[in-house]
Design a binder for these strands. Structure first.
Lengths: 118, 118
DNA sequence: CTAGAAGTACGATAGCTGTCAAACTTTGAT
DNA sequence: ATCAAAGTTTGACAGCTATCGTACTTCTAG
């Protein structure tokens, strides 16, 4: 293994990582209004590590999950890269907070308390 | 005028002003994802004063506007009261910021810059 | 080289919601 | 008393989107 690098950082296989400043608030809110997508963001935030697509606990099929990951990626919320056959997901927290300060905190905080106290 | 008070503060005519802590993030995001509703919030914030329903610049019919105001009210974003035949709208900024800190700022800031620079 | 694992792409579908027009209610002015 | 102004309510409708299953691609392991 690792004969010519096992991490494809920005390979052809992953399209479209927008500059966050080019992302509109409309896009961001459309991304975050879906509970499944918020769950992805929250799990990613709580993990304090990158997580592969199959590593999330989600109540939907694989193809639907793929759809949600694309929406999040195009809204600038996550960055994706391959490790082998696994597609990894990273939260773009710092860049995102610069443009939409407080938003991620509100989402993560609310979703965590709704799980704990709800 | 003013024979027995011309402002109905919490009269029968206005239902359902939720305690903001009883409002879910889901409700709030569903309210804010609509551009017309965000425009209402932004205009209200920029006005630094309460505004009657007819006082907004909106690209929809009166009945649709009524619909949007209800969504915003039920999401805890605005408070409504009557003055004569006019239904006034107040932004519940302080209470809202306590529970969802930063959210309103992001919305107002983004919508204002998209008007100025977009 | 062949399976299997991990995702993606593609239609198809069902439910939600933003929209309008029309009819109605309530208040204030004349 | 009437009439207009300001909103609401009610149906109806169109477009969007979250969902699924199936087929396809790509990489890794044996």
């Amino acid at each position: 293994m690792s004969y010519h690098g096992d991490v494809d950082t920005d390979a052809d296989r992953i399209p479209d990582h927008p500059d966050i400043r080019a992302v509109t608030l409309q896009q961001v809110l459309e991304a975050l209004v879906d509970p499944v997508r918020r769950s992805i963001v929250t799990q990613l935030s709580d993990a304090h590590a990158d997580v592969k697509c199959g590593g999330f606990d989600l109540p939907v099929s694989k193809s639907t999950a793929t759809h949600h990951f694309r929406i999040l990626r195009e809204a600038g919320l996550i960055r994706q890269y391959y490790v082998g056959t696994s597609r990894m997901n990273a939260l773009r927290r710092n860049e995102f907070d610069d443009v939409f300060p407080g938003l991620l905190n509100v989402v993560v905080a609310a979703d965590n308390t709704s799980l704990t106290h709800g």
